[in-house]
Amino acid sequence: MEGILGATVYPVLVMGGLAAVFAVMLGVASRVFYVEVDPRIKAVEELLPGANCGGCGYAGCADCAAAIVRGEAPVNACVASPPEVYEKIAKLLGKTVEAKEPQVAHIMCRGTKDKAKIRFRYMGIEDCRAAVLVAGGDKECLYGCLGLGTCVKSCPFGALRMGENGIPVVDRDKCTGCGTCVRVCPRGVPKLIPASQKIVTVCNNHDAPPTVKKICEVGCLGCGICKKVCPEKAIEIVNFLSVVDPSKCNLCGKCIEKCPTGAIQQILPG
């Protein structure tokens, strides 16, 4: 009798009793620490791309979904989603989509190794963020692309590749305009532009004309010739850098013809 008790009844009672006590404890705790979760947050999160790129300004897709459901962010807050997703989210929440022009990244530098002067030979870590720490980078130009590919490595959508000339190239089909490259670049060389913008000043240098002339063959001097020849007044010179307003530009191409360094480029066929 004692043997049967020891071999079967006690183990079952002890383990069962322990389990019962813990079960009651967890049951009480789950009531006390209950967190209400809106089921729509999960649904919206599943519609988002899940890359956690942070382009929306929130900590990740889950955070963004919560903000959309709470109404703090618009249904098209996610910059990386195609328009169909906005419609699905809007339908789910009973809201309407406000039209927003999609954006793509563009690398605002053409200063390849043969065109832009180098001050010294950088042999450190292959990362632009590390390279700027060494005397401000190896290029004479303090605004140009360092060409070590930090943006390429950090693009969550694989939309960037390093060009043969040492300047990254954006794959416009893959680019979602999330802006990760803009944030990681220590010099802010990639910029987000409207996807329909065709004429762009591909330079990031804010130095005065004589300085730019000395250090880069293809940089924007800030001379203002483009501004003078533009019949639509679509070009402004902001701090020695020309900026094209795509809403006014009619693609006449006069600025491209007259630009002494070729910094103004037509990036899409007219």
Partner: peptide, 12 residues
């Protein structure tokens, strides 16, 4: 059981 408990508390 205690991990479950901690999870609930942290989530809250």
């Amino acid at each position: 059981v205690f991990v479950q408990l901690v999870e609930m508390v942290i989530r809250k």
